[in-house]
Design a protein around this nucleic acid. Structure first.
Length: 361
DNA sequence: AACTCGGGGAA
DNA sequence: TTCCCAGAGTT
């Protein structure tokens, strides 16, 4: 539903973006994947590779969390050619702790396609970009606007929130953004589409925050219908989430004679897909399954339990540990050092840390 | 259209 | 605790 009442129709296309971009020119966040506005205004453009990596990392992941991962990643694989040469397992290890591990595998697959079908050059239109693995409507539009400074309409959580408040849209947030798009097209900047998108994101991060927005310092306050009518606290509207189910299981930490930990590669589909972890039992809702350690040994259960929160359920793991002499050929044997720990998904890192602490006692 | 995918920062 | 984060892919 598009709401074009008298107040919102006065939102002037060029005046809005002028106010926003003047604010951005002074207040832009200094981010490692970003060319600052004083340089983009001189025609210097962002590196599509860096914008791509950052956009994938930033999917459902905060800027603060992403920065160090981004710098490490770019240092190790500075361009798409190098990334294409990387091993998928190494990319997954570099991704460990970020979550949503499918992103890392899609990244590798996408690099392959870019190198083999696009001669190492990122497409500059959303139609081609959305064909690539891991790149949906949002990321395609972000690359087109931010990296190539062409007109496109990335709609992330920030832009969704800001536009909803500007036009006082009370609709429930959905996957389908066509509604918001109509309103966004009334206010965006044709001259600086890349900076406009980033300015909206910075505004959403610094001023127009989800809770307690600092409206008194907002550069586009006079255009905001939700502020005018004091409805911003309930916009955007979201339904409250259902309570998470509790799942329980066992984590098996097998240690070889040469003090290495036995790891296996999880199936590509499903939770923590493709990552290399200690084996676990099945995870049953509300009760522990019967423990069945995968290798012969003198298994003991730790007193401490591991609690970890996923998006859709809470996990409680009992940790079992044993010395293991016989194991299959296809396992991964890794030394118990910081590199190994930091290459594990967070839940597994926590479990291994608990396990080896007790093992050393 | 509804699920499934992690993890952490911040209030 | 709860919410939210520069979402995409699958069902």
């Amino acid at each position: 539903m598009i709401k074009l009442n008298q107040k919102t129709s006065k939102v002037n296309h060029s005046k809005f973006s002028k106010s926003l971009l003047e604010w951005y020119d002074i207040n832009a966040r200094n981010l490692p994947w970003r060319i600052p506005p004083e340089l983009t205004k001189e025609g210097i453009t962002n590196d599509p590779y860096k914008i791509w990596i950052s956009e994938i990392m930033l999917q459902q992941t905060g800027v603060k969390t992403v920065q160090s991962y981004f710098l490490n990643f770019i240092k190790r694989w500075p361009n798409v050619i190098e990334l294409n040469k990387a091993k998928e397992d190494d990319v997954l290890k570099a991704w460990s702790g970020l979550g949503y591990y499918r992103r890392a595998r899609n990244l590798k697959n996408c690099a392959k396609t870019i190198c083999e079908k696009y001669n190492g050059i990122f497409p500059n239109c959303t139609e081609e970009l959305t064909k690539l693995p891991g790149i949906g409507n949002y990321t395609a539009a972000a690359i087109v606007s931010i990296a190539y400074n062409k007109i496109a309409f990335p709609i992330d959580g920030n832009i969704q929130r800001i536009v909803s408040r500007l036009f006082e849209i009370r609709d429930e947030i959905k996957n389908d953004k066509t509604n918001l798009l109509e309103n966004l097209k009334e206010i965006f900047s044709q001259k600086r589409p890349g900076d406009f998108a980033q300015a909206m994101m910075d505004l959403g991060s610094i001023i127009c925050k989800p809770a307690n927005p600092t409206c008194n310092s907002c550069p586009v306050l006079k255009y905001c219908l939700a502020h005018k009518n004091n409805t911003y606290k309930s916009i955007p509207f979201k339904t409250k989430k259902v309570k998470k189910v509790a799942k329980k299981g066992y984590l098996y930490i097998g240690i070889t004679d040469c003090k290495k930990i036995i790891l296996i590669k999880r199936p590509n589909n499903g939770l923590l897909g493709g990552t290399i972890c200690p084996p676990t039992s099945e995870w049953k809702v509300n009760k522990f399954p019967i423990p069945k350690p995968p290798y012969e040994g003198d298994w003991k259960v730790l007193d401490n339990r591991l609690f970890h929160s996923f998006t859709h359920f809470e996990l409680e793991l009992k940790i079992m540990i044993s010395k293991v002499k016989h194991f299959p050929q296809n396992v991964y044997l890794e030394p118990l050092n910081d590199y190994t720990l930091n290459s594990l998904p967070t839940v597994m890192k926590k479990g291994v840390e608990m396990g080896i602490t007790s093992f050393n006692d």
